[in-house]
Amino acid sequence: MSDWLLEVEDLKTYFPVNKGLLGGKKDYIKAVDGVTFRLKQGETLGIVGESGCGKSTTGRSILRLINPTGGSVKFAGTEITTMPHSELRKLRRRMQIVFQDPYSSLNPRMSVSAILNEALSVRDHFLNLADRKEQVMDLLQLVGLNPHLADRYPHEFSGGQRQRVGIARALAVQPDLIIADEPVSALDVSIQAQILNLLQDLQKRLRLAFIFISHDLSVVKHFSDRIAVMYLGGVVEIAGKQQLFSKPYHPYSQALMSAVPILNPSKKRERIVLHGDVPNPANPPQGCTFHPRCMYRMDLCKSVRPAPIEVETGHVVSCHLYT
């Protein structure tokens, strides 16, 4: 048996687009292009990067909400990219997702009780009415909501309360892994900390593994054990959060870290400003995808894609500067 709950190897997800006036030729947007990482039970991996870098597509591809184009995803040692849908439905009970927008991720025509009952029926078809009602109450208490609110509808809740309902729905099937896709970005800052603390408490209590997707570095640092930095569909660096924030190796990671505000005004940090725009994922650069914006680029970077290399224990970077 593997020590890893989740093993993602060279994951690719391409979206076809038509070219030309008659659409006779096809091109591909390489939303995810060779992502590799592993995750243990009870661990949190944060995924950060600019908008459009492939963070959310990576999460959805792991769950096969979007079918990946290539690569391997193993959950508890079982390959899921080629798994029949009948078997995948059973396995998905162990893998859940909390979406970014609590306003659109809940059915407005269903009460909270009905939403949670639907999830409970997926886990156990034979639960009687009394047991379901009791478990709905327990789920609401678990996420910090008053059980007496069970008969209300989503529009009667605040954004933070709706997100708690979304978390309760994910927990209803007793998963081992939760993919949290920007779960606090649509919430007020005052509510964000409450939701993050709730997720951390649930993780300790239930020994959940998390993939935490966000563009907010401070939020990811607070919540994650390890962090993967994505750029244009690929992971350019992955390390423990203290390793990454204290000594980022990849030039893109260095630029990201330089943008994090420092609370102590006496400390100064040189701001690294990247020039140019993110390349088109339908036509990514050859070699290192970051080389058009990199201040350290070499001729090798323009033609050869860098292989991941472990520069320190548990600290992997894809950059020719360290090969």
Rank of each mutant, 00 (worst) to 15 (best):
Gly276Gln: 06
Val184Gln: 12
Val236Asn: 06
Lys241Thr: 09
Ser190Lys: 08
His222Val: 11
Leu244Ser: 00
Gly233Met: 08
Gln192Arg: 14
Ile191Asn: 11
Leu232Thr: 06
Arg226His: 12
Tyr231Gln: 14
Ile272Leu: 07
Asp277Trp: 06
Leu202Ile: 03
Met257Ala: 12
Leu187Gly: 05
Arg271Leu: 15
Lys221Tyr: 15
Val273Phe: 10
Arg226Tyr: 02
Gly276Ile: 10
His250Ile: 11
Ser253His: 04
Phe210Ile: 03
Asp201Ala: 15
Ser214Val: 11
Ser185Ile: 08
Asp188Val: 07
Leu256Lys: 00
Lys204Arg: 15
Leu274Ile: 12
Asp201Val: 13
Val189Asp: 06
Ser185Glu: 03
Lys221His: 15
Lys204Thr: 14
Leu187Arg: 08
Met257Glu: 06
Lys247Ile: 11
Ser246Glu: 14
Leu202Pro: 01
Asp277Ile: 09
Gln254Ala: 07
Ile227Pro: 02
Ile213Ser: 04
Leu217Asp: 06
Tyr249Cys: 15
Ser258Lys: 02
Asp225Glu: 07
Met230Tyr: 07
Gln203Arg: 15
Phe223Trp: 11
Met257Trp: 14
Ala259Thr: 10
Leu263Phe: 11
Lys241Ile: 07
Ile272Thr: 10
Ser246Cys: 07
Gln200Asn: 13
Gln243Ala: 04
Leu206Asp: 09
Pro183Leu: 02
Leu256Tyr: 00
Ser214Asn: 12
Val189Tyr: 12
Ile213Met: 07
Gln200Asp: 13
Gly233Trp: 05
Pro265Gln: 06
Leu199Pro: 08
Glu237Trp: 07
Ser185Gln: 10
Asp277Asn: 13
Ile227Trp: 02
Gln242Phe: 09
Ala186Val: 09
His250Thr: 02
Ser185Pro: 09
Ile211Val: 14
Gly276Asp: 03
Lys247Gln: 14
Pro265Met: 07
Ile213Gly: 09
Ser258Met: 05
Gly276Ser: 04
Glu237Lys: 02
Glu237Gly: 00
Asn197Tyr: 03
Gln203Glu: 00
Leu198His: 03
Met257Lys: 04
Asp188Thr: 05
Phe212Ala: 02
Arg271Asp: 06
His215Leu: 04
Phe210Gly: 03
Asp225Ser: 14
Ser266Arg: 12
Leu198Trp: 02
Phe210Lys: 05
Gln254Ile: 14
Phe245Pro: 00
Phe212Trp: 04
Gln203Cys: 05
Arg207Ala: 11
His215Gln: 13
Met230Gly: 08
Ala193Thr: 13
Lys268Arg: 13
Lys241His: 04
Leu196His: 04
Gln254Ser: 09
Leu232Gly: 05
Met230Phe: 06
Pro251Glu: 08
Lys241Arg: 15
Ala186Phe: 12
Ala186Glu: 01
Lys221Ala: 13
Leu198Ser: 01
Gln254Cys: 11
Ala259Trp: 08
Arg269Asp: 03
Ala186His: 02
Arg269Glu: 10
Val189Asn: 08
Lys221Gln: 15
Ile211His: 05
Ser214Ala: 14
Ala239Ser: 02
Ser266Leu: 12
Pro265Leu: 09
Asp201Cys: 05
Ser214Tyr: 08
Leu206Gly: 05
Leu198Pro: 08
Leu244Trp: 00
Glu182Trp: 01
His222Glu: 11
Ala259Tyr: 00
Gln254Asn: 13
Phe212Val: 08
Pro183Ala: 01
Val189Trp: 09
Asn197Cys: 01
Val236Leu: 05
Arg207Gly: 13
Val229Asp: 05
Lys204Gln: 15
Ser258Tyr: 00
Leu217Asn: 08
